[in-house]
Amino acid sequence: MPRKKKTKKVRKGNGNNPEITVGAIITKPGSSMANKTGSWREFRPVRDPSKCIKCGFCWMFCPDNAISEEFVADLDYCKGCGICAQECPVKCIVMKKEEK
């Protein structure tokens, strides 16, 4: 079968969308980094460094891996779930409303 025809068929299937790959493969790794979930946030975690005992609970419990080893939330990805504030044993993190 001539190659031209084949290409045409595939195009028909993927509706000319280059993101439609055979077997639904994502060919560029790290695509979740492009999705900045920080925009979902309604409450922002604010840490009081003077109270912080650097236990690392917030870092460990963050489901989005959005807290650095210096215990600072990366606001590009923090969804504001509040788990860090909940788990902090000395309650040095408070959730502040984003909207003024």
Binding site: K12, G13, N14, G15, I20, V22
Partner: peptide
């Protein structure tokens, strides 16, 4: 689109 591709294949 994935399903259509599979069907075409």
């Amino acid at each position: 689109h994935f399903k259509k591709m599979q069907h075409d294949a």
